[in-house]
């Protein structure tokens, strides 16, 4: 380890140690010792990073890529989602908030095909995607992450990342087995690998590349999940509580990444409990309460809304 003679800045030292830890003793790589995300390091990287997203993503031109209209879902006698309508504008960070049980996650599941709605439609880039299978929705360019990060634990970070890209020829059995076709598969994988490393660098988890995903800390898993979703080359990303269980410094880093990606043209819909976080970062906020949309507007409008305060601070729940 040549740490000492490099006369590193504080953060280099910290990160170096983290890298060495991850390499020699697996499982450690505590986000507590993560470097504080810094504005100035983004400067020299700027050009590379904007290249990252726009290189492959055909970012949507539709002004409202995601439109949800009158969506409803009941489980037995419980109305989980009750006539929810909203739309998400391209290139924005839209927050979806509400007390526990407001139907946020169910709405996510209805949009992404994990659940079939009882009524209502979901339109994505002008196309009706209601009731499609989750993998079909994902292949249209609507990616999601989960509330509890769902890493593929006994696969390495690299395997997790390599899994994500769409249209892999090697996903057909005969291509991955037969001699000539396998050559083409290898070629495609090698190309894909460049982008995987680029994204790993972007999220600064490249030192964990060979680690089993199950050995990552909670915050690192969230980063990996976002990175993985990004590799599916989506137009819109639905993030279900991306900051839950993430320490403040990593939370800031994650937010910075999200802002950067949004500037590159990605669209985000984020479910979150932390009111302040949503209010400070989203252009638009949708508040759900008891399965319905209570309020839809700018953070300032939401803050002043009597109904929202009522819903959060009690009243009839």
């Amino acid at each position: 380890m040549s740490e000492a003679d490099e006369t590193p800045t504080d953060e280099t030292a910290v990160d170096d140690t983290a890298a060495a830890d991850a390499a020699s003793t697996p499982a450690e790589g505590e986000p507590a010792s993560e470097p504080t995300p810094d504005g100035d390091s983004a400067g020299p990287d700027g050009s590379e990073r904007s290249g990252l997203a726009l290189a492959e993503s055909g970012v949507s031109v539709d002004p409202t890529p995601l439109e949800v209209d009158d969506l409803s879902k009941t489980f037995g006698g419980i109305v989980a989602v009750d006539g929810v309508s909203f739309d998400v504008e391209a290139g924005t960070l839209t927050g979806l908030i509400g007390p526990n049980g407001a139907g946020k996650s169910t709405t996510f599941n209805l949009i992404t095909g994990m659940l079939d709605p009882d009524s209502g439609t979901v339109r994505f880039n002008g196309e009706d995607i209601t009731g499609l299978q989750p993998h079909e929705v994902a292949n249209k360019g609507l990616a999601r992450t989960f509330q509890i990060a769902r890493e593929l634990e006994e696969m390495t970070v690299l395997e997790n990342m390599m899994l994500a890209p769409k249209g892999q020829a090697g996903e057909s059995l005969w291509r991955s087995v037969l001699p000539v076709a396998r050559g083409a598969v290898r070629k495609q994988e090698a190309e894909q690998l460049d982008r995987v490393w680029e994204v790993l660098d972007f999220f600064e988890i490249d030192h964990l590349a060979d680690e089993y995903a199950g050995n990552l800390s909670g915050g690192q898993r969230k980063l990996l999940e976002l990175a993985r979703a990004l590799l599916t080359d989506p137009d819109v990303l639905l993030l279900d509580e991306p900051f839950a269980g993430v320490n403040p410094s990593l939370e800031r880093r994650l937010l910075e990444h999200i802002h950067e990606l949004r500037e590159q043209g990605y669209t985000f819909l984020i479910v979150e409990h932390d009111m302040d976080l949503i209010m400070n970062n989203c252009e638009r906020v949708i508040v759900m309460h008891q399965g319905a949309v209570l309020k839809d507007g700018t953070p300032a409008e939401i803050k002043d809304s009597e109904e929202v305060i009522e819903a959060y601070l009690g009243g009839e729940v």
Binding site: Q133, E151, M155, K166
Partner: peptide
């Protein structure tokens, strides 16, 4: 790789298309 992903978490693999 997809087979492994199914073993680990089928829903997650599905959500990845």
């Amino acid at each position: 790789r997809v087979l492994k992903a199914i073993r680990e978490d089928e829903d997650a693999a599905n959500a990845l298309g």
